[in-house]
Each structure stands twice: as C-alpha cells, then as structure tokens.
Design a protein around this nucleic acid. Structure first.
Lengths: 245, 245
DNA sequence: CGTTTGGTTGAAATGTGTCAAACTTTGTGG
DNA sequence: CCACAAAGTTTGACACATTTCAACCAAACG
C-alpha cells in the first residue's frame, strides 16, 4: 500500500469493515486537498452549506454550538482518522461549527467524488453511515452525562471516553496520552463552569485517579475512574463488526 | 395508493425525497407486523441485538438510558412516522432503550427485507441515512440545551421543538397539541428534577406563554416562547431538500 | 523579559435538588 | 355510577452543588 494521506482513513474504516482490494483502491483514489490549520480556528461554521467534507489527519478538533447568550457547548471531540462533517453529504445546512483544538492537518474531499464512491462501493457507504451512527451514539451518551451525572462523575466519564478513543487509534502509551483541551474547553464539553472544572480535576488528582501535567494525562486507576464515571464503553461500538458475517 | 400501514412511512419519507412510483411500490411491499403496545412499555432495551426495526404508527415513544445510580435520561421523542431504532440496521448492540409514552401501534420490519430494499433502492437508503442524521442533529441540540441553558429556557426550548415536530406531521391545530409526557418524563428529558419542572411550567404559564391542561398544550405566545427557548429550528432540517435538485 | 493565556484559590450568591406532605386527576372494579 | 386506589401535580422549607466574581499565580510565547 503506498504511503498516502488516505491511508489513515482506510485504516479507520478497516477497523470496522474488511475492505476488498477494489474498495481500498477506490479510497486511495479519492482526491484530497491537504491543508494545515492553526489551533483555535473554525474549519466549518454553523450555517455553512459545504460542498466538501474533511478528514482529520493530525491533531484534534471539536464540534460546538453557541447559545443566544454567548455560551458554548461542545458536542464531541475528533481524533485523527475521523471525518467530522460527513453528515454534510446529506444535510445541506450545517447546524454546528467545528474548531481545531490544536494545530491540525486536514484533508478536504469534495462531495462529488465522495458521492460517486458511495454509489460504486455500497459497502463503503455502509461504513460511512455506520460512522455517523456511532457519532449519534456518542451524542446520546453525552446528553446522559450532562443531564444526569454530577460534575465529578461527569468529568471522569469524559476522560474515560477520551482515553479509549485515543487508544483505538494508537495514541495511548503506558496509560498516558495527550489531553490537548484547556479547562475552558472541558467546561464547554461537560456543561459546567471553568472554575468548577478546575476543582473537579483536582479532586480526581487528589483521589489518585489521574495525573495531569501540561497537556498530558496519565490514568493511575482505570477501574476507579471507570466506576466514578459510570462508564460503559458499549456506546462507542468498538470492534462490534468483527463478529458480523 | 392503497390505504396501508406503510403509507405513514411513505408520507414521512416524501417530505424529504420525491419518490418514484417504483420506490413507493417497494415501500408498500415491505412486510410489516403491526402490534399494539400499552403505555410505559419498553419496545427494545439497552443491550438487545435486534433483528428488526419498528415504525411508530400511532402514539408516542422516547429513547432513554439509565445511569448506574438509577437516574434516567431521555434523549428524544418520536412521533408517528418515525423509525426510532433504524440504527440497529448497522449497529448490532443497542446502546439505549425505547419506551412508549402512550398506548402505541407499531409496525415491526425485519432487517433483511429492509436491507434488501436499501440495496435495490439507493435513494431510499439515502433517505433513511438522512433520517438518522437528523436524529443526530437533535441529539446535538439537546446536549446544548441540557448543558448550557437554565431550567426555564431549557423547558421552553423543548416545548418549541415538540410543537414543531408535531406540526410537521399534522398534529397541531389552533396552536394546540397533545403533550402526552408526565412531568417526570419532562424532567428526564431536560435533566432537571420533577419538582423543578413543575415550578418552571408554572412560570411559563404565569408569564402567559402557554396553557397546559390535562395532556393538552396551547402556545399563547410563540414568539416569546421561541425567544425564551433560544430556539432556532435549523437543526430539525425541515424541508431542506425541497431546494435540492 | 514583559505579555498573554491558562490554571488556581477563596468567599459569597444562587439555582436547583431533596424531602415530605397535600392536593387533584385519572382509572378501575364493585 | 360511585368509591377507592393509583398516578400525577403542587407546595413549602431547607440543603447543597455549582456559579459567579475577583484576585493571584504559573507557564508559555514572541
């Protein structure tokens, strides 16, 4: 397999579907315009009517919405390999924005070749559909998290998810990974205030569940973090399909 | 068009896509097992591995999840015409439960004929995909609602959505519609306590925005309700496609 | 090396939860 | 059709998790 930017997407899809040579080749042939983007930049914005999607190749992004009185809510994070605005293939108007959390490299893919690909390779289309369904499952879990867990448990939950998602793309080593978001961004994701995020993180540290220094997170006690976060990874639907015929 | 149970689904899809005669016929031919279900019954449950979906024909349902300590969070409501667990076509394990809010009539459809239909009628598949994307958009809005709006605004928002979704299927007359959920269920949807739901509803009534009697809701001042709820219906993606070629 | 950004701390204010009781409506069986 | 039970709603008092405000500190950065 040639070392192209498309490989990341292929690897991600292959964790879901067994791809044929033909399907792999079709993905390799996807025209993609790679671009570097600084941290804290919007890639797409609420109200846009995009004619292309993007694949996240390097770095981290988040979807968010602003309320009328200027509060921000983050709905999810993205890790390399994700195609965060895939839905724009079928919903013309974007109802959310996507911003970089860190400097990123992204690959833009025009809708047209993507539609063409879906038409010719129905299994790839299925894989894409499935991706958007997993996104939805994560949204449901976040509603639950924000609606029904207190700040301490909520933060533990979101950290559990983060670690598992990074592990799935090989970015966790020795229980340690990047945690690139600021406490303000964690606040916007959990629906609590920045000040309280700080207190809750200290409590998690004080209780010996995690170590947090700079932008690195180390999980000291996974079992307890998981328990505090009331975390059941089913909703991430990892490797579910390997069992499928 | 013969008066079948499938018509409701077809009508719903046609509000999204212009269907050909062939496509309509294919939908009509979908084998469907109709069943009546009492109120407050689970139709599917977290952890299930369904081999069929169901279309809601009459009544109202909701998806929900329980947390470890027994709290419930509702993620969305369903109105007649919806196929609430369509995602089980591509995600084997259900990560949520669906319960009836009222007595319902539902039509079960086996996965196999549904997959067959998607294979043969790619436009219908697209319509289905699109449905699941709108669901996801609603989830995002609910995260925002629960995470970043206070109880009063949150309740106003959820009522706005309810009214618009019912209006879309012709169930609103004279600004009045059913509101079949109990205050406990409203609490589970908004992430606040039952007692506080009651207080907030009274505030909305006291301010002349709504009338609430029995299970009937009347909106007295839509503009203000909308404003209080910080409600922008874009995320429901109504009639967006009529513009599409 | 000064400036900016992000993290930390404490005190006071407040929105929402909890508890417990009363009231009202709905449904049901005698 | 009444009487009773069950389910849902309403109320008040109090507790408390979280927010807000304001200041300070530490790290990163040009």
């Amino acid at each position: 397999m040639p070392a192209t930017e498309q490989n990341l997407i292929i690897r991600k899809l292959e964790s879901i579907f067994r791809l044929s040579d033909e399907e792999r080749a079709a993905l390799q042939a996807l025209p993609m315009q790679v671009q570097a983007i600084r941290a804290d930049q919007d890639i797409v914005r609420e109200g846009d009517r995009p004619t292309r999607c993007f694949a996240l190749l390097e770095g981290f992004t988040a979807t968010y919405k602003m309320t009328g009185d200027g509060k921000r809510q983050i709905h999810s994070w993205h890790v390399p390999g994700d195609i965060p605005d895939l839905q724009s293939l079928h919903l013309r108007v974007l109802d959310f924005s996507i911003s970089t959390l860190t400097p990123c490299r992204v690959g833009f893919i025009q809708h047209e070749p993507l539609r063409e690909l879906c038409r010719k390779q129905p299994r790839i289309m299925e894989a894409f559909w499935r991706q958007t369904l997993v996104d939805a499952a994560i949204f449901r879990e976040w509603i639950t998290n924000v609606g029904r867990r207190d700040a301490y448990n909520r933060m533990a939950h979101i950290l559990c998810e983060w670690v598992l998602r990074l592990r799935a793309v090989g970015l966790v080593e020795d229980h340690t990974c990047d945690l690139p978001m600021t406490q303000t961004e964690l606040a916007d994701a959990t629906g609590i205030s920045t000040v309280h995020v700080n207190r809750v993180l200290q409590e998690l540290r004080g209780n010996g569940l995690i170590v947090l220094r700079g932008n690195r997170l180390k999980v000291l006690d996974w079992d307890q973090l998981r328990q505090v976060g009331d975390f059941d990874p089913t909703y991430l639907h990892f490797g579910e399909d390997r069992e499928v015929a």
